[in-house]
Amino acid sequence: MVERPNESEWIHRAMQGDDNAFAMLVEVYQVPVYNLCYRMLGNPMEAEDAAQEAFLRAYKGINRYDPERRFATWLLSIASHHCIDRLRRRKYPIRSLDELLPWQQKADDMPGPETALTQKENQEAVRKMLEQLGDHDRMVLILRYWYDLSYEEIAQSLSSSVSAVKSRLHRARRQLADQWIKRTSIEVGKQGRCDEASAF
């Protein structure tokens, strides 16, 4: 996420109480913030509410923003803390919609029908596997892969240490690899049984 030329001006004006300038920042950062909330909470409605609340918290705390820091990182940090808080308060496990809503279909995913199906299944499998991770481990993974944050930036965003971030990322990757192997072996087993049945 590269900062726009006008961004520092909008931030400056927002810090002086200009609501329109802050609305411009909302316009620019709605997708990254919403995506973070969606990946963490797994539900479009809750993600929408969490993203709105994250922007509200940023709006109220804009005067605490340190211009030396990247605005995107600061904003994602607020959204991350808010999502973790929500998950902590939540008593039921993540329950996402099976299908993405129409506006959530990604424009760059336009392969052929068969490839598209496999791709969709794989994406769905990865999404479910992500949901199995611990909240903090999932957050570290999301910040690393979707936002390309450095270990230091992730640590700063989550009020954690670099070594803790590395350890969480390591654990998340290992867990995902283990789950992928299990999934693949189950599918191979299913495939084998289908082949045997069709031979008879």
Binding site: Y34, E48, N122, Q123, M129, Y145, R173, L176, T184
Partner: peptide
């Protein structure tokens, strides 16, 4: 396995509201 998963994650784009 990890390379597969990482590839899937890297190919997943940002979801818009």
């Amino acid at each position: 396995a990890w390379a597969d998963v990482e590839g899937q994650i890297l190919s997943a784009s940002l979801i818009a509201p």
